[in-house]
């Protein structure tokens, strides 16, 4: 109820929610909006219309135009929505699981174990994120699974810290003492009594991180270590536009479509997650109520 009232007062946040719903619908109905064609190994292989080196402008056959190498931009933008959801939600949910486990163990058992786990978190925090992810992806090979593994490996620490501090805070509350006094086990205390109450701060962080993980994944593709050639992935397609965006002398906007469509897709996708995360943070933060 509180959330609905907030949305009514904050039209910008409402836009975020609507955008997110729109992207979800595009992802679900991708096979209908951009039907797969013959000779594709998977639906994520973008069909190409020939092998011409220069991008071709939008036409009835390719309504968003084609990239260098004639990959169909419209198809890639539609199926790229699925790729974005897969990577964003995949990386964040696995990171939350790892982070929650590490944070919960550290907080609950404390002492030496806590110290060791938190120092490991410190070490991972001291790693330059994008470069580390690049190295790991370069070692593991191209594809969305290596990308997901790389981003998760260097992206779980924030959740461990939040979960740990939330547990330390909640552990001292009366209802936990009460639960313990009637004989609840450690595991039961953590899973049923403590973690659900630590849920909201994690949810805010996770929502915001979904957008930024999609950005990082696309940055990997842009830097040449992300998904395979021709995979329906926005970052990959933006990297195809790199050599063309300057246009030609006298006609700087000649190849506008190579950047405009995949660029707009990733921008709006990340924007929607950020707006929703921002709204969640306001709704859950008592300081913002007037």
């Amino acid at each position: 109820m509180k959330a609905l009232r907030y949305l009514a007062r904050n039209p910008i946040s409402l836009i975020g929610v609507l955008l997110l719903i729109a992207f979800a619908l595009i992802a679900i109905f991708a096979p209908v909006i951009a039907p797969t064609q013959e000779f594709q190994m998977t639906p994520y292989d973008t069909p190409r219309a020939g092998f011409l080196a220069t991008p071709q402008p939008p036409s009835p056959e390719a309504i968003f135009g084609t990239t260098e190498g004639q990959y169909d931009i419209y198809y890639a933008v539609v199926w790229g929505t699925r790729t974005a959801f897969k990577i964003g939600l995949g990386v964040v949910s696995i990171s939350v699981l790892i982070g929650a486990t590490v944070g919960a163990i550290a907080a609950y058992y404390g002492g030496v174990l806590d110290e060791i786990l938190m120092r490991i978190v410190d070490v991972f925090m001291a790693v330059p994120f994008l470069i580390a992810a690049m190295v790991l992806t370069a070692l593991l090979g191209k594809g969305i699974i290596p990308v997901t593994i790389a981003l998760t490996t260097f992206g779980w620490m924030g959740y461990a810290r939040i979960i740990r501090s939330e547990i330390l805070r909640i552990r001292e509350m009366d209802y936990i003492h009460a639960a313990r006094s009637y004989g609840a086990s450690d595991l039961r205390l953590i899973l049923l009594h403590i973690l659900p109450n630590a849920f909201f701060p994690v949810m805010v962080l996770a929502t915001m991180a979904t957008g930024s993980m999609v950005l990082s994944a696309s940055a990997l593709s842009f830097l040449g270590v992300g998904t395979e050639e021709g995979y329906a992935d926005w970052g990959q397609f933006i990297s195809y536009s790199r050599n063309w965006i300057i246009g030609q002398p006298g006609n700087p906007f000649q190849y506008w479509y190579t950047l405009a469509f995949p660029g707009a897709a990733i921008f709006l996708f990340v924007l929607s997650w950020n707006l929703v995360g921002d709204a969640l943070r306001d709704i859950l933060d008592p300081r913002h109520s007037h």
């Binding site: 910008i12 906007f253 950020n274 707006l275």
Partner: peptide, 26 residues
């Protein structure tokens, strides 16, 4: 809020390519 979140949602390279297009090419 909208102005800053707008900037934050831009992939750095998309914004960078736009800058190149406008301030270099044009």
């Amino acid at each position: 809020r909208f102005f800053t979140i707008f900037g934050w949602s831009f992939p750095v390279y998309v914004f960078g390519l736009l800058m190149l297009l406008i301030f270099y090419s044009v």
